[in-house]
Design a protein around this nucleic acid. Structure first.
Lengths: 190, 190
DNA sequence: TATCATTGACTGATCAGTCAATCAATCGGT
DNA sequence: ACCGATTGATTGACTGATCAGTCAATGATA
């Protein structure tokens, strides 16, 4: 017998793996439960329904991403280092794992129809934006907000491209483009 | 009785509408057929299976987008105008219709598991990239390729954000950011 | 004994895809 | 003009499979 917390984690991780394997949200609760080594009944017992299991998986992904960002920021010294840390984290190997990519894409789709999913996604966006703005201000002053918007958008867009069509744009190249944009924006007259 | 071409178009358009309404690919062929005013059997008769109906819908969206781009380019005079036209078209009202947004997002998901969907998506990417590169070259010289990559990525990323969380970023604002980036990139020393 | 974890068989609903049958248009021959 | 035949358009009932969610029963623990 395991504690509720352990089971929830197992189920959530299994959900991410299954989504990654199916490359869509078309995964059955039974398969998820099987992968987690429990019965389907238990999944329903703890999460109520499939939607809430998906949302828990989304929170899990966002939590890990958030932790990675915090870790990277912790070792950064200058504001410039901190912005670079934010960019590099977005293109880290963690975020290029097949299941993580698939999860993100499907969460974007889910965000269209689920208020809670949209809320979670906008929390991520706001946090990234506020981190960027904070560390860009010493470097670009009043332009910080606008530059943060552009750097953030560029991260999302290039991530999307390199995740889906890696032949056309490797993750490393994508990251370099964002860093190049950062240099250009910082070099602008204020 | 209607011709095969007419029926195919009706079914494809109905598919886009249904995807837009469901905000996912979880739509039944029966509902699509009903919306198109025909029986489900006819949909299978013409498209074979659901996947091929989705791919046809994707081609339809990309064709319309391509036509809009061609139209906008036709009236543009200078290279700068042409790049602007490409950017503005990506944020046109057509592309902000709910069903079109939903279709795009779901096509990104589909591209993970369907070779044909990925192929279609990379055709779109290559075309945008080559258009951008061509018209950027007179303005930024050898940097054209890199700048095109960044502008293209920014378009995708900001489109995604403004499509999903319009409260955080209106489509118009998103477009302005891309145009601002264009100015900055052109203003760079070569 | 009381409580919590866990199972897995079961139900009801949904849906992709099939198929045999009907309906409409066209055409070649008379 | 008329007719049978051929071809293509169209239907919708049907099947087999899948799956979300339920629930009564069992196992473990304190």
């Amino acid at each position: 017998m395991a504690s509720e917390a352990q089971r929830r984690t197992q189920l959530v991780e299994a959900t991410v793996h299954e989504i990654g394997e199916a490359r869509s949200l078309n995964v059955t609760v039974s398969k998820i439960a099987k992968r987690a080594g429990v019965s389907s009944g238990l999944a329903f017992h703890y999460f109520g329904d499939k939607d809430r299991l998906f949302l828990a998986a989304m929170r899990y992904i966002l939590t890990i991403y958030g932790a990675e960002v915090r870790g990277a920021l912790a070792v950064a010294q200058t504001p410039r280092d901190r912005v670079e840390a934010l960019i590099r984290t977005s293109f880290s190997s963690t975020n290029f794992r097949d299941d993580v990519i698939s999860a993100w894409l499907n969460f974007y789709v889910l965000a269209q129809s689920s208020d809670e999913a949209r809320r979670l996604l906008s929390v991520y966006h706001r946090r990234l934006h506020s981190n960027l703005t904070h560390d860009l201000r010493p470097q670009v002053g009043d332009r910080a907000t606008a530059v943060a918007e552009r750097i953030g958008g560029l991260i999302d867009g290039l991530y999307l491209r390199s995740a889906i069509i890696p032949q056309a744009l490797h993750g490393t190249a994508a990251m370099d483009h964002v860093l190049a944009t950062l240099d250009i924006e910082i070099g602008q007259a204020q």
